[in-house]
Simulated assay, not measured.
Amino acid sequence: MHCVRTRFRNAVAALAVAGVALSGPAAAEGTLRIAEQFGIGYLPLHVMRHQQLIEKHGKALGLDIKVEWAQLSSGAAMNDALLSDSIDMASGGVGPLLTIWDRTRGNANVKAIGALNSMPLFLTTNNPNVKSIKDFTDKDKIALPAVKVSVQARTLQMAAEQAFGDGKFDVLDKVTVSLPHPDATTALLSGATEITGHLSSPPFQYQQLENPKIRKVLSSYDVLGGPHTFNLIWAKEAFKAKNPKTYAAFLAALKESMALIDKDHPAAATAYLAINKGDLDKGFVEKILNDPDIQFGVAPRNMGKYAEFMNKVGAIKNKPASWKEYFFEDVHGETGS
Rank of each mutant, 00 (worst) to 15 (best):
Ser132Pro: 00
Lys242Gln: 13
Lys139His: 09
Leu98Gly: 08
Gly58Leu: 06
Lys66Pro: 00
Ile261Thr: 09
Asp279Ser: 15
Thr270Tyr: 07
Thr155Trp: 07
Ile34Leu: 06
Gly225Ile: 15
Val110Glu: 04
Thr137Ser: 13
Leu172Asn: 04
Trp69Asn: 06
Pro203Thr: 01
Val17Gln: 12
Ala187Met: 15
Pro202Thr: 11
Gly30Ile: 07
Met1Lys: 14
Gly297Phe: 05
Ala28Leu: 01
Asn302Trp: 04
Val217Lys: 02
Leu260Ala: 13
Asp281Lys: 15
Leu72Tyr: 05
Thr6Gln: 14
Arg9Thr: 11
Ala259Thr: 05
Arg154Gln: 14
Val313Pro: 01
Ala77Cys: 03
Ser257Leu: 10
Ala187Phe: 14
Ser118Arg: 14
Thr229Lys: 03
Lys242Pro: 01
Val285Gly: 09
Asp102His: 05
Gly278Ile: 14
Glu308Leu: 04
Phe296Trp: 07
Pro292Thr: 08
Asn211Glu: 12
Ala238Val: 11
Asn127His: 08
Ala21Gln: 04
Phe164Gly: 09
Ile261Leu: 05
Asn231Leu: 13
Tyr272Asn: 03
Thr99Leu: 08
Lys305Ile: 06
Ala299Gln: 14
Arg33Asp: 11
Lys277Asn: 10
Gly62Ser: 06
Gly314Asp: 02
His2Lys: 10
Arg154Met: 14
Pro128Trp: 03
Gln152Thr: 11
Ala192Phe: 05
Asp264Arg: 10
Ala163Glu: 14
Val149Asp: 15
Thr246Phe: 09
Arg103His: 08
Val4Trp: 07
Ser257Arg: 08
Asn318Gly: 00
Gln208Gly: 08
Asp173Lys: 01
Phe164Asn: 04
Val67Pro: 14
Pro212Asn: 10
Gln37Phe: 02
Asp166Thr: 02
Ser73Pro: 00
Ala143Asn: 13
Ile261Ala: 07
Val4Cys: 12
Ile195Gly: 12
Lys168Val: 02
Ile316Met: 11
Ser178Gln: 09
Leu199Glu: 11
Ala315Thr: 02
Thr125Met: 02
Gly304Asn: 15
Ala235Cys: 11
Gln52Ala: 10
Ser150Asn: 02
Lys305Leu: 12
Met258Phe: 01
His228Lys: 07
Ala184Pro: 11
Gly283Asn: 13
Arg215His: 06
Glu334Pro: 06
Glu286Ala: 13
Leu172Cys: 03
Asn290Phe: 09
Gln207Leu: 13
Tyr206Ile: 07
Leu280Ser: 10
Val151Asp: 05
Asn126Val: 04
Ile133Gly: 07
Tyr247Glu: 13
Thr270Glu: 15
Phe327Val: 10
Ile288Tyr: 11
Gly197Phe: 00
Leu53Glu: 12
Ser23Tyr: 00
Trp234Cys: 02
Glu161Ala: 04
Leu63Glu: 10
Arg301Lys: 13
Gly336Val: 05
Ala70Tyr: 09
Thr137Pro: 03
Asp293Pro: 00
Glu325Trp: 04
Ala27Lys: 06
Asn107Met: 10
Gln37His: 06
Thr335Pro: 15
Ile133Trp: 01
Thr185Ile: 12
Leu224Trp: 15
Leu254Val: 01
Tyr247Lys: 08
Pro320Arg: 06
Lys66Ser: 10
His2Tyr: 02
Ala28His: 05
Ala60Arg: 11
